[in-house]
Design a protein around this nucleic acid. Sequence first.
DNA 1: CGACGAAAGTGGTCCGACCACTGCGGGTGG
DNA 2: CCACCCGCAGTGGTCGGACCACTTTCGTCG
Lengths: 233, 233
Amino acid sequence: MEETGPRKGTVTQRAIERITAMIREGELRPGGRLPTERDLAARLGISRSSMREAIRALTVLGVLEARHGSGIYVTRLEAGDLLETFGVVADLSRGQRLVELLQVRRALESAATATAAARITADGLAAVGKHLAAMDATDDPEEFLAHDLAFHREIVAAAGNETMAAILEGLSSRTVRARVRRGHQEEDAFARTRSEHAAIHRALAARDPEAARAAAAAHVGAVEEWLRARLED
Amino acid sequence: MEETGPRKGTVTQRAIERITAMIREGELRPGGRLPTERDLAARLGISRSSMREAIRALTVLGVLEARHGSGIYVTRLEAGDLLETFGVVADLSRGQRLVELLQVRRALESAATATAAARITADGLAAVGKHLAAMDATDDPEEFLAHDLAFHREIVAAAGNETMAAILEGLSSRTVRARVRRGHQEEDAFARTRSEHAAIHRALAARDPEAARAAAAAHVGAVEEWLRARLED
DNA sequence: CGACGAAAGTGGTCCGACCACTGCGGGTGG
DNA sequence: CCACCCGCAGTGGTCGGACCACTTTCGTCG
């Protein structure tokens, strides 16, 4: 009678669970280096091919990082590492789910903006104002969009929640492409965005969390409303 | 001069991008079946091994589903499929990031509960009340926890946003384990949870979105506060 | 003493073989 | 004629080995 592990699932799936367990139990530390693929495979009694599939999967999830010629390392396991895949999800979403994602963004962005109103520094507020002014000064859609993203990124960063920032990053960068087309279709889209951003900035400057929350919710809600209407095709 | 694709990155990474692109462009439809591993590998000019790594990665992400002996299929690409990995992230989180995740949950749960107050049906409200009563009636921590989760799940479902529900599902099921230990440490934890849940239920019954939002935020905030204090070790 | 280069180590890719499971279609028994 | 069953072809799952590309290290040479 031989000793063989659990029978359920594929060997690769089990390998993934074993590695994540090792990280969870503290056997492998963030930033630390793993044994070689060959060693790991031998240790779990599976082939190198199967082990490689497990490692690749965890690499895509942002848990591991493979450096050619050097070794395999655990990432710092920071929010940005792990939530990068969130962008992929948003990228593959269509129709109704896009509206749902915007509702998620509305909830998070309004909460983050409210917190930012209470915590943002003078320097941070100046940076936000700089992007606001840059948006007022340009007519180039690409540049406008870049400062738009930076505007929100600066505010969310001021809220001090990296996890929320990482989620919003993945939620915005892709979805916002729709807003580009919006600018092409509706002439007043730029103007409306400018005034909404100005309202957010005023609330931040006044250190008024509730006003900031409302302004941010209204801003995202406007995009959401437009998208919902556009789904009538 | 031969035709060979882009040189950057690993072939596996490129294969992943090619497949996701095929899905994004509509070449592959949700629920549809892909060519065989051997065909796909040949089509992209790479080995079956590399193609398998790409497929495995997308399988873990919830984009593809491999059925032994049958073929490889695109998932329905619904929120639950894609955000399952969100639980893994929460599972690997520790310390400060757990607090940040609870803040994310607070923002989403309060928004969902507010929406639910406006939309929940009589049947839904009855189901919520059933779990509330069940929590009042038991002393078993496991059963209490099960009804606790079901209580929130029922409310979030009533909000009608599957994406938000999927995120909250991954955000609660793991994190909530901490609450179990909480119940063991603080005797009045059960009682406090009961009263907080009762407040949420009353707000839902009154169809009062703002009261529901506040009650939900306070509920999650209480857990958050406790966790933050517990981090002083 | 410093810079260069060779060698060892490690991940990346490919190949071919075989196993395990599914699905289908033909053959068989009713 | 129909229903059931079995076997075969197809497909994903696993394995082992070979070789390539890159990094790191250490010894050697100037």
